[in-house]
Simulated scan of single mutants.
Amino acid sequence: MEITKAGKGTAASTEAVPIGSTTGKPQGATVTFKGGVAAVAALDRVGTPFSWGGGSSTGPTKGIGRGASTTGFDCSGLTLYAWSKAGVRLTHYTGSQFRQGRRISLNDLRKGDLVFFGGGTGDPTHVGLYLGDGVMVHSPKTGDVVKKTRFLDSSYYRPIYRGAVRPG
């Protein structure tokens, strides 16, 4: 199975990279749009531990504070990692990521869009990466791991949904 990676400043390059079976893509599937590349990159990290302040464009890192002893991702670290694989640079802060891209309505979400939650009227406090059918991949909290969650049906996430952004 392969994925065509989007290069920096291009719609997509022709470099093919093998991907794991965690993507749920049929054998031989190729993803050429940046959001799809980001989604596959995030899905390949399912099971990685949450680490407060963890994650970079190269992968999981030791976090800071309460994440200092764990190698993994926090929510914005996962999304910046995933989008870096599509050639898009994001900051490592949920509030900043909320302002990095074009706002997308709930009805127009597509794979790879960033979905934001919480924070009342201030910056959102959580970010995930949309996969389709009301599902996101995210790094939820200390003691948990990167996983998929149905947020549109969730009694926790749905009421605190803040909006979505399409990076790049």
Score class of each variant (00 low, 15 high):
M1P: 13
T4F: 06
A6I: 12
A11C: 10
E15L: 14
A16S: 10
T23Y: 01
K25S: 10
A29C: 10
G36M: 02
V40P: 00
A41C: 08
A42L: 01
L43S: 00
L43Q: 13
R45A: 14
T48C: 05
T48E: 10
F50C: 03
G53N: 07
T61D: 04
K62T: 12
G65I: 10
A68P: 01
S76K: 11
G77D: 03
G77V: 00
G77A: 08
L80W: 00
A82F: 07
A82P: 05
A86Q: 11
G87K: 10
G87E: 07
L90C: 06
T91W: 04
Y93C: 07
T94R: 08
Q97W: 03
G101T: 09
R103S: 15
S105K: 14
L106F: 14
L114D: 02
V115H: 00
T121Y: 08
T121I: 14
G122D: 15
H126A: 05
V127N: 04
Y130R: 10
Y130V: 13
L131C: 07
L131E: 07
L131P: 10
G134M: 04
V137R: 05
K141H: 12
D144P: 10
K147V: 04
D153F: 01
D153A: 15
S155F: 07
Y156H: 13
G168I: 01
